[in-house]
Structures are given as structure tokens and as C-alpha cells.
Simulated scan of single mutants.
Amino acid sequence: MNRLARFAGFGAGEHGRIDRDDAPGADVTADATMDAAQAGGDPESLREPIIAALRRVHDPEIPVNIYDLGLIYRIDIADNGDVDVDMTLTAPACPVAGMMPVMVKDAVKTVDGVGEVEVELVWDPPWSPDTMSDEAKLTLGML
């Protein structure tokens, strides 16, 4: 975790989970978790709970979750439950650039059955409003 994220209070709370008080802007709750046995043991069965957890992470400056903003480019789930996420930001100079990958990692870790989590910040292709869901566009008055 970088110093800015640690200073701002982002990161895993007790037992590797984020509590609302531990991560301002990351409204991740226990209902995003799912027992791996309940998920059927198939790594792909973790995809929907992971997406649900990501939908509880918001950029503090935009009232839409990062998944519907189109900031998540790739979610790879290994057979052992390890997860790799490629994400971007709305702009390279985004003020939460140091904190957002930590928020994403912590959110994905809340899903039962997930092992190690790696988050890579990528800039290609650059983010554009075209990557947003219709729901996000509607929320922001773009539809």
C-alpha cells in the first residue's frame, strides 16, 4: 500500500476485510461475500460476487460505482481463486489514483473463495464515457 493510501485510511481492516469506517468511499459490505462452497467451487462462479463487490466501490468525485463507470477492464480468476484485475481511471491525474487500486483490491478480497488479489492500473485503452453502462450514463444525465 502506498503512503498516500495508508495516510488516508485505506486498506484492509481487521481480518483482511474492509469496514465502512476503514475505507471512506468504499461502501463494501458483508452481503458482497459468498461462500465458495455455495458458489459451486467453479472459479467463474466468483465473477458475479466480485462484480457485486466492485459495484460498492465509488470514486469519491463521481456518484457512480467504478464497475458501471467502465473503469474495470479485466477480471481473471484462477482455479485456486486468485484474482487479477486490470483497471483504469477517468484521467491519469486523478486525485485518488494512489487509493483506487487499494480500494479495488480490498473490495475483491471481501468475497469468500478469493485468494490473492492483484490490481494493475492500465492506461491503454484510455477510459472514455463510451465505456460507461447505460445506468451510469442515466445517473450522470448523459442519456
Rank of each mutant, 00 (worst) to 15 (best):
T33W: 03
P24D: 01
A8P: 00
E120L: 04
N2F: 02
P126R: 15
L4H: 10
M103R: 03
G25L: 03
F10D: 03
A23D: 15
G11P: 04
D134G: 13
L71R: 04
T90V: 14
D22C: 05
M87I: 03
V28F: 00
A12P: 12
G13M: 05
V96S: 01
E44W: 00
I50E: 02
D124K: 12
E120S: 12
P43R: 06
D27F: 12
S128C: 06
D124A: 14
V85A: 08
G81N: 11
D22S: 14
V111R: 10
P126I: 14
T88N: 05
L69D: 02
E118H: 15
K109I: 08
S133G: 07
P24A: 04
E116G: 15
G11Y: 04
V28L: 07
G11S: 07
G13L: 03
G16C: 01
S133D: 06
D27M: 11
G113A: 10
G98M: 13
G11N: 09
D19E: 14
K109A: 15
S45I: 06
M100C: 02
R20A: 11
T90P: 08
T110L: 14
V104T: 14
A37F: 00
D82W: 05
I75Y: 04
K109G: 10
L140R: 13
G25V: 02
A32G: 10
D27T: 05
A5D: 07
V122Y: 09
S45H: 06
G113N: 13
A39I: 08
P63R: 03
V114W: 11
P125I: 12
A107C: 11
V102N: 02
V104K: 02
V108C: 12
E14L: 13
V102A: 09
P60C: 04
G141Q: 12
W127A: 00
A8N: 10
M100N: 02
D106V: 07
A36M: 09
V57H: 01
L138A: 15
V114T: 12
A78K: 11
R74N: 10
P43F: 06
R6V: 13
R6T: 14
A23R: 06
G81P: 09
A23L: 10
G141N: 11
P60G: 03
R55A: 00
A53R: 05
A93D: 15
